[in-house]
Design a protein around this nucleic acid. Structure first.
Lengths: 339, 339
DNA sequence: TTGTAGGCGTTATCAT
DNA sequence: ATGATAACGCCTACAA
């Protein structure tokens, strides 16, 4: 059982003061080369390790950051977290993960405990239902930098890294138009959520730019579930005029749509093209791989981390920086008629 | 900018000593009911928050635990982490995540920095190449409980939560035999890794128990990649005598196998049955859903956390507990001939 | 029941 | 260049 060795142990052994030891350890210029080397050598020999807790108490900096996501085991979020971890770890930070379970109350608690444990920064993707931002402003009030990713709120002084969802919606729809589709349906998420609204707007704009008048009946609200895509297709196919393409804001709903379409004997992509959103891992593994819009989660995490580091280093914790990443369309068989 | 309020601020305001305040806050019995209530009320009014850092420095307990996994964005690992987080969070713990990138050197560093930041416990799934365990024993030496999950090492005094990989291999193979398969091939992982060795043993035992003599040519070592499954099938199909089933220790290799089999016109499951391992999300989404062995990662995380909590509460940090969970076979179309 | 004092390990300020 | 001392905020013997 290794007894903890402190700077006092070193100072005693060397008959110098603890302050000197501390200086040697911290590259303080006010110390002779000789003493420094001696201290460093004996510290190593005694297997001395700085006590990060004492350091943190003294300095107020813990070298920990917190990440709050709805659920950590969603492919998108875990990839963002990986990006954050890999960018921050070389700088000596540890990443604490928290889940909101898509619930504002949890979000509030998580922010509270994170601030209480004195994290040096917080990264978060807000819950879908979050409206009020007072809990988020607490971070600002305590001078803890907070960076949003993907799902943000507009809070003055806070930075965000998101993708251009409008562009994602535009790209997907434009691609479908290029495949010759003219009657393009859209499965949107909850339109009160910014990202879904933007995807929808992008869809509408692409139609408009190509002289296609959107049919309001063709915009259906679904949740991110396979079943939701199935029932949406059923609903659409009740009418005489059927779509020749579906752009779904969710890969799961897109998959459900594909299953249902095949079930009723419709050829994909010949009769109907389908495009999803998020580039979930499964989309590329299907026998009929699904075209999807990639949100570059890994990049997003890395960049969010960089924004944080810049703020820390520049000391300007309230430097509101808005990064918008370009989404990437992965064209696969479900919408590719040029095979 | 909220100034931090300490127990001294409260003590001054109330004209009592900081010690009394501390006692009131900590439910110390040696204090009058009246004082306690007064303190509690003013603390709340002044918006007092305990400084966890000071507390940690004093007590040596941080209420942080570390989790080391190869990669955090693998479905299996992120689900285990979710289990750990959800079990520990109600007990006031925060979860720090670290990645080893399947590299022992990183593992060593991660353990070092985790111990250095004084985590109260460590959870880990070792890298595939890890042989030497001296870095792991450090945790033991510093009295920090360490719990393995899924990929363990046998270190006296350390606990582990794993699934019964032998049984998983047995179940999968037995299922294939029940489907009428007699020439069952196995795609194994690196057999020097315990979990893969056990799955292989389970496969062999099931064959033996049903009077089938294993063909050594039918055991191929693959890595967990789609391409690996493709080439394994190519290799198998070069011979005159073809298998009528494949049990793959990896879902990805199973998927590759399926793709290749279909390509050469083989009907699944009629001519060849395929079973994978891990129950990756994509397996159930395929047009031909893939039978797979589920490792119950979420449960695994929760139980690992419980093992940790027991050790902490019982003060017996070296209570070597070995939990073995039962794997679950999810039978799907890729191996189900009774449709 | 309450107060005093010391210490957890470090760093920063002020002397020397 | 080095040493003494205080302080970060809390907890806990020990004393009163």
């Amino acid at each position: 059982m290794a007894e903890k060795v402190t700077i006092y142990d070193i100072s005693k052994k060397l008959n110098i003061s603890a302050a000197t030891v501390s200086r040697a350890l911290n590259n303080n210029p006010k110390i002779s080369q000789k003493t420094r080397e001696l201290v460093l050598k004996t510290a190593a020999k005694m297997n001395y390790k700085q006590n990060r807790l004492a350091q943190a108490l003294k300095s107020g900096r813990t070298n920990n950051v917190g990440v709050i996501v709805p659920f950590i085991n969603r492919s998108f979020f875990s990839s963002v977290i990986r990006g954050i971890e890999e960018e921050l770890s070389p700088h000596g930070y540890h990443v604490i993960i928290c889940q909101s379970h898509e619930d504002v109350d949890n979000e509030i608690k998580q922010i509270d405990t994170l601030l209480n444990t004195q994290v040096d920064g917080i990264f978060m993707s807000v819950a879908k239902t979050t409206q009020d931002t007072s809990h988020i402003q607490k971070a600002l009030a305590e001078n803890t930098p907070l960076v949003f990713f993907d799902r943000k709120k507009d809070v003055p002084g806070l930075s965000s890294v998101i993708i251009d969802d409008f562009k994602g919606g535009y790209l997907a729809t434009q691609h479908l138009i290029k495949q010759g589709c003219k009657k393009i349906a859209h499965f949107s998420g909850d339109l009160s959520v910014e990202i879904y609204k933007n995807r929808h707007q992008g869809y509408l704009k692409a139609l408009k730019d190509h002289g296609i008048t959107p049919l309001s009946r063709f915009s259906l609200q679904v949740n991110s579930k396979l079943e939701s895509g199935i029932s949406a297709v059923k609903e659409l196919w009740e009418f005489e005029e059927k779509p020749d393409a579906i752009f779904s804001a969710s890969d799961y709903a897109a998959l459900g749509a594909i299953q249902e379409l095949r079930k009723i004997g419709i050829k994909i992509p010949k009769e109907v093209c389908v495009v999803g959103f998020s580039n979930e891992p499964f989309t590329k593994y299907m026998e009929l791989p699904i075209t999807s819009v990639d949100q570059t989660p890994f990049e997003m995490g890395k960049i969010a981390a960089q924004v944080f580091l810049e703020q820390i280093e520049s000391q300007i914790l309230t430097a509101e920086k808005k990064v918008v990443l370009a989404p990437e369309l992965y064209i696969r068989d479900s919408s590719n008629r040029n095979l």
